[in-house]
């Protein structure tokens, strides 16, 4: 449904071209949560920006439902890591969530209903009239997620969304993402450098190498749904998958370290 074929992205630099992503190909199935995990500096964000239509790949392409992505598609929503700058500080939480819905065909009542439902979903019904900077970091990221939920995208792209929230909030937000996927059937493309998080959330995990990054391996995560922070993570299969992915990433880091030595 979302197909990435032989995607390559090269940035011009003073020393010539820097290839962040090379020969990247994979397919994300409808309704699945597909994680991209890799060491930092693996060009994950570059890849994601190309998929989201924010940047154009140097070669290769991204296809969504048979059409090439040549700009941000209307059916996509993004949750960035930098929630503070992604939200509008001068608009209330309610307006932040509502703004993407202000388009033809959405009545005020319909928008209002979707904003209320989305904020209730993330547990922020009381914050509708607050400004983002009056909320904690975790709450701000929940607003960003509520905005994505209310938008009802077919594909939700999340770029290390929980990298700057505390551990407890992170666990809560992970379960929120699983719930959204369960209830709405949204396809989710999730970028992270956290192995536990990728295994816990995903149907499949793609391990990417350092730049120029390519896919080293795609791992099927056959853990039962619904997942639970304690029960799922206690399963031997979780431990095995986690060790497998972790080992793969460590080898990549190790290899490049040796290569540079």
């Amino acid at each position: 449904m979302l197909i990435v074929t032989e995607l390559e992205k090269t940035y011009p630099t003073k020393k010539g071209g820097f290839t962040a992503v090379r020969d990247m190909s994979f397919t994300v199935q409808e309704g699945e949560l597909f994680s991209i995990v890799g060491p930092s500096g693996a060009g994950k964000t570059t890849l994601l920006r190309c998929i989201a239509g924010l940047d154009r790949p140097t070669s290769g392409g991204v296809y969504f439902q048979g059409r090439e992505v040549d700009g941000p598609p209307e059916d996509f929503a993004i949750v960035f890591q930098d929630y503070a700058r992604s939200l509008l500080p001068w608009a209330t939480v309610g307006t932040n969530v509502e703004l993407p819905l202000m388009k033809k065909g959405n009545t005020a009542a319909e928008r209002n209903r979707r904003v209320t439902t989305a904020l209730a979903e993330v547990g922020l019904s009381d914050a509708v009239d607050k400004k983002p900077f009056q909320l904690s970091g975790g709450m701000q990221q929940r607003v960003a997620i509520a905005r994505a939920i209310a938008y009802r995208p077919k594909v939700l792209i999340m770029d290390e969304p929980f990298a700057s929230v505390d551990a407890q909030t992170r666990a809560d937000l992970e379960d929120l993402v699983l719930r959204v996927k369960e209830e709405t059937g949204t396809t989710i493309l999730f970028v992270t450098h956290d192995v536990d998080e990728s295994v816990y959330l995903s149907n499949r995990v793609a391990m990417v190498t350092r730049s120029p990054s390519r896919i080293a391996e795609v791992v099927d995560i056959d853990l039962p749904f619904p997942r639970d922070q304690i029960a799922t993570k206690s399963l031997p299969e979780f431990a095995r998958l986690r060790a497998h992915v972790f080992g793969g990433i460590r080898d990549m880091v190790h290899d490049t370290t040796l290569a540079h030595a």
């Binding site: 989201a52 239509g53 924010l54 700009g71 941000p72 209307e74 929503a77 993004i78 993407p100």
Partner: peptide, 12 residues
């Protein structure tokens, strides 16, 4: 990031 967000949500 705010401008990227606007683009990704196809704001006018």
């Amino acid at each position: 990031i705010a401008l990227d967000t606007a683009r990704s949500y196809s704001l006018s």
